[in-house]
Design a protein around this nucleic acid. Sequence first.
DNA 1: CTGAAAGCGCTAACAC
DNA 2: GTGTTAGCGCTTTCAG
Lengths: 347, 347
Amino acid sequence: MTSRQNMLRVAELAQVSIATVSRVINSPDKVSPETRQRVLGVMQQLNYTYNVLAGSLTRQRSMTLGLIVPTITNPIFAESTRGVQERAARQGYTLLIGNSDYQADEEARLVRTFRQHRVDGMIVTSSHPDSPALLEAQRAGVPVVLTYSSRLRSPLPSVGVDNQAAAAEAVGYLIRLGHTRIAMLAGTFQSSDRSYARYLGYNAALAAHGLPRDPALLLEVPYAPEAGANGLLRLLDQPGPPTALFCSNDILAFGALRAALDRGLSIPGDLSIIGFDDSPMAALTNPRLTTVAQPAYAMGERACDMVLALVAGTPPETTALVLPTSLQMRETTGAPPPHVAATHQLT
Amino acid sequence: MTSRQNMLRVAELAQVSIATVSRVINSPDKVSPETRQRVLGVMQQLNYTYNVLAGSLTRQRSMTLGLIVPTITNPIFAESTRGVQERAARQGYTLLIGNSDYQADEEARLVRTFRQHRVDGMIVTSSHPDSPALLEAQRAGVPVVLTYSSRLRSPLPSVGVDNQAAAAEAVGYLIRLGHTRIAMLAGTFQSSDRSYARYLGYNAALAAHGLPRDPALLLEVPYAPEAGANGLLRLLDQPGPPTALFCSNDILAFGALRAALDRGLSIPGDLSIIGFDDSPMAALTNPRLTTVAQPAYAMGERACDMVLALVAGTPPETTALVLPTSLQMRETTGAPPPHVAATHQLT
DNA sequence: CTGAAAGCGCTAACAC
DNA sequence: GTGTTAGCGCTTTCAG
């Protein structure tokens, strides 16, 4: 065939060179108004669709960014995804998305795939922030920014929150309400350093108030409502049950709340519950969930801005952005039941 | 420089031609075990990363699929997205994702962008199923499959549910429970034909039972909890308030439930509520939400299988797949309050 | 302001 | 089995 190259066809019909067509697309002002109009017209009538792939190949820039989250199914990640997307689109970038399911190997696989697709940068909520795949990508020149965790001394830039401090604040609140037996339902540490950081905060708060740390009060579970429900039940069914529960995310809290209600407990009369994330549903449950709010959407935006800056070669001012969290005191928290407090005093 | 082409570098070091390198990647068995190992070794030591972009250019296949949903923020779409992703990944495909925000023009923009990125096919939960952009993509040879709606006579293939029948079933249930004043909170018709189909089902159910259709009982609102809450309040604050509410999605129902509870209504004692989607939270609210379940994950899987079949040139058996829905009768529905029933009898 | 030409990294015949 | 050689569609100096 004569010419399959789309741009060439446009060029021929418009009586200009292919270079000119390229120019009206990439730098319109470098072309005289007349020719530009003519070319534009032909593109229209030919229904020409620019081939980003070809452009990316020569230009060494794919105009795509890779986004990896544990699971888009968790509203908090859906939220930050929107943030990333909004900023990316604004800059002409398109997103490749993948779910790691909190699995380090799946995360690594995604990183590899994205690199093959030559993403210009990636934003990842990692299950394993020191993953070789991530470091290697960065070493290979693909900017990577971590989200949701603040690893100040990580080799990878990040935009997150201070999980430990936020958790400590939540637990501190419980303590101030009078609770002394506070349990924690934590997402599996191994698959999320955030969960572990929150656990550290929980511990810190207990320690700060001179409260003993009871191993029986900590349960590491997968991030699922059922796990939250079963977890709470197990916690409750042991001697010296807790009067308050801190969950490392809202999903767990929702499950726990449901289980508590099913068991006929009054919330927060019999049990206080605090979640983490402040996902949209937190303000809608009955009773409304007290939880730690994270600026998810903003986190996505900032992370996107950061990779884009890195891509552009503009070193961002900070390489470790820590966004503020805020405890949303709602209806699932209150003073511990009087008899329990009394019991506790006796021991 | 001598040779920037990655494959060439591998080829040189491995003492083979670039074609052979390509072969060990795409059809390993066409290469002798020894050379293959040698090449593999070099790739390893060079840390070679295959360039999908370049491959796509020659092969005319990008190994990417475009996915467009109204908003990934709605759990039901997050769910189907996972389904799509799972199937896509299994076939070596990567996903480009975009949110249309129920906006036809944004959807069109995404379609254009995806086409420029040469996606091999797209799956879209459209806000405007007959959108020229969609039809044009299909005409241009890019398979498009619609999700969530069943448009049997649409020119575009789809995998969805029978929204109208599902809605009719839900409303029919309410009627059988004894309700006669049933309101509907519907997502804006203009931005979702699914919402309209559900409205049609609502109407059909009323008609089938000889119930009058009261325009004052229908409210078209945006898909947001606040809209659900305010909507219900408006519905309630008019003469002859409804005793039951059918919402065109769970988000609206969650908002309405919250507002009803805040107003001190007993649910379902004073008001019955039914949602649509059966998003994960529906079974966790207090009381649990009665809602119409859609097989979101499966829908995503099937849609992905369908585009992939289309991409491969294998005409799928059906071009309009309708998946079953099922009414999940939980705790937000019950008989109407006795006095209202009495009142109604008087009129 | 516009054109010619050398790639970008890989694939796919077609030979050997 | 393995190598040669045209491209795939676009960008980008470098001239003019």
